[in-house]
Nucleic acid binder design. Structure first.
Lengths: 226, 226
DNA sequence: GGGGCGCCTTGACGGTCATCAAGGTTGCCC
DNA sequence: GGGCAACCTTGATGACCGTCAAGGCGCCCC
């Protein structure tokens, strides 16, 4: 057992309402797993016996288009959980592919063990439901982004979604991944992403330096969406 | 109290695990509401005190794009619930607009009352979580659809999503709404939808008669997506 | 330091689809 | 039946963005 991991769980809000004994039970059936960049964690359609907590590195959830293009549906950052929703499916199967972007480590929790613990803790049930509600809301946002006809709006919408909610004025953003990955996430080609950022920079709306994007005036950029 | 509604709830899987007393408590705080075509039920950003069960008619959940175009995110059919996820938000606000498409009636349940009942019923918690998991999966599918670059794929993908899962060969589908509405749902213009259906018909893949679309060969249409 | 390899950028071109505009079809009401 | 209003279809045009191709830039390793 790993003390650091135990502490991490105690502060993770999916697990914070559990007793120490319950957390230990969960961890007893969990598996820690290192993964390399590009390594697959699970495939779309696989039977889902586990869900995950990312400790380090980054992970992409994606699907493959008919032509083989990969559409990234979500980028996972450390201390986020993913594939929790499979826990509640009648016939649990992963609805997407999951693979490493940058090497790291996940904790893979056992579905059955988690369900057993949930049964004893309404507070944790609520946390899980809250988490899923947040996911659903994030999906609405993403669906909205993708439905935006032109790529410029999609990119701007995405940049705005990365800015802290309370922010104003000048905001520095670190892109969570390489630009190819970002492009796959907003459903444009890397070329178009590059060009779009260029135009935005030319219009003095942003500055780009590698993976650091600075929004020069948040309000002004927001207005551009209207 | 309405006996028919009570019976309906007993067979709805979000409520079926409740005792009669619990169902009555819920209904006591619920409101029945008739709505007209186009009438708003709630606006994006409104504080959410209620979630809904549609009894008759149809409802659209949508957002407005910068230019004022309306992107329909989900079409609700009778006996479906919607906006359940707001129940679990810290600061509950509707994440989309909701309005009638065809006139009908909803039951509006009180958020707090539902939470109180949930606390007493793990089985219902599980049903809710299952429901939300299904929503999340549906969202993945929709996000995938929208990320598909060309409109033809989007339309075909949508038609396929309407076919019963076990079906084969010739399948008749009734579009769940007028074509303008469908178009807004797959994020194309009505003109493009019309042309796309025309082409598919010319290629002997489907037949269109008003709101009835017949897929002539399901397998063949599926292959067209690869 | 130089070569090679990713990654990103820039350019040219063509297909797809949104837009604008007009015509057709259906159903309803007087 | 005639007129009107939705809704849908069809046509013409042009902008946008995906594709292909080439060039630049940083980084690592020899």
């Amino acid at each position: 057992m790993d003390g650091a991991l135990g502490r991490e769980l105690r502060h993770h809000y999916l697990f914070s309402a559990l007793s120490d004994a319950q957390r230990e039970r969960l961890l007893a059936s969990a598996e820690r797993r290192r993964f390399a960049a590009g390594e697959s964690l699970f495939a779309h359609g696989d039977v889902a016996r586990r869900f995950f907590l990312l400790r380090t590195g980054s992970v992409k959830l994606y699907r493959l288009s008919p032509e083989g293009g990969e559409k990234i549906m979500r980028l996972i950052r450390p201390s986020q959980t993913f594939a929790e929703s499979t826990v509640f499916m009648e016939e649990p199967r992963y609805p997407v592919h999951g693979a490493g972007v940058d090497a790291g480590e996940v904790v893979a929790f056992d579905r059955e063990a988690f369900l057993a613990v949930l049964q004893e803790s309404f507070a944790t049930c609520r946390a899980v439901m809250g988490q899923m509600a947040a996911r659903i809301q994030a999906h609405w946002d993403e669906i909205e982004t993708l439905a935006l006809q032109n790529s410029r709006y999609r990119v701007v919408h995405y940049l705005l979604s990365l800015a802290p909610s309370g922010a104003r004025g000048r905001v520095r953003i670190d892109l969570p991944a390489r630009k190819v990955v970002i492009a796959a996430h907003v459903a444009v080609t890397p070329e178009t992403l590059s060009r779009t950022l260029r135009v935005l920079a030319d219009e003095q709306l942003i500055e780009v330096a590698g993976e650091a994007v600075t929004i020069l005036d948040l309000q002004k950029l927001r207005q551009h969406m209207q």
